[in-house]
């Protein structure tokens, strides 16, 4: 049993499955997330697989400021993910609300709805920054050890 626990501890950093959620981005950051799986960046080198179902995902990659339309859905998707899970806010909008902050239909950054582990600022972010953020998110041992704002 101990061996299996050790094996799964070793494995948890080696095979991050990501789920991409657009909470209200202008699509700039989403294109960069998709860039990561293209031959130029090829996230599969690190074992990263893009999954469709939140049930299969380890890392939730969120882009954009949270709009009123997506707020409940974001919360639902986060709750559907099995533990241990990590959240990465990709893009200035996802970190703080960015240019959309204060808009009548926007609640702000991702962390106004769900806890965020790693922030990646930038408008739009670069794919290599997303890759390093995924690596960093997986190296976190416990919740609340991630970036502070």
């Amino acid at each position: 049993m101990d061996l299996i626990r050790k094996a799964s501890q070793w494995a948890s950093g080696k095979s991050p499955w990501i789920l991409h959620f657009n909470a209200g981005a202008c699509n700039g950051c989403d294109i960069e997330v998709v860039d990561c799986v293209t031959p130029r960046y090829d996230l599969e080198r690190f074992g990263v697989v893009k999954q469709g179902s939140p049930r299969h995902a380890d890392v939730l990659i969120c882009t954009g400021a949270v709009t009123l339309q997506t707020r409940d859905r974001l919360k639902q998707i986060y709750e559907q993910m099995p533990e241990p899970k990590r959240v990465i806010a990709v893009g200035t909008c996802a970190c703080t609300g960015g240019v959309f902050d204060g808009c009548y239909c926007v609640t702000g950054g991702i962390d106004t709805v769900i806890p965020v582990d790693v922030y990646v600022p930038g408008c739009a972010v670069r794919p290599d920054e997303i890759i390093s953020a995924v690596e960093r998110a997986l190296s976190l041992k416990t919740d609340g050890e991630g970036d502070k704002k």
Partner: peptide, 22 residues
Amino acid sequence: RKGPKWYIPFADFFKLIGKQTI
């Protein structure tokens, strides 16, 4: 593309073993 490293299928399996079952 470059493709995964040789231990990735094992890692996938053991990671899922250690995850919460909902």
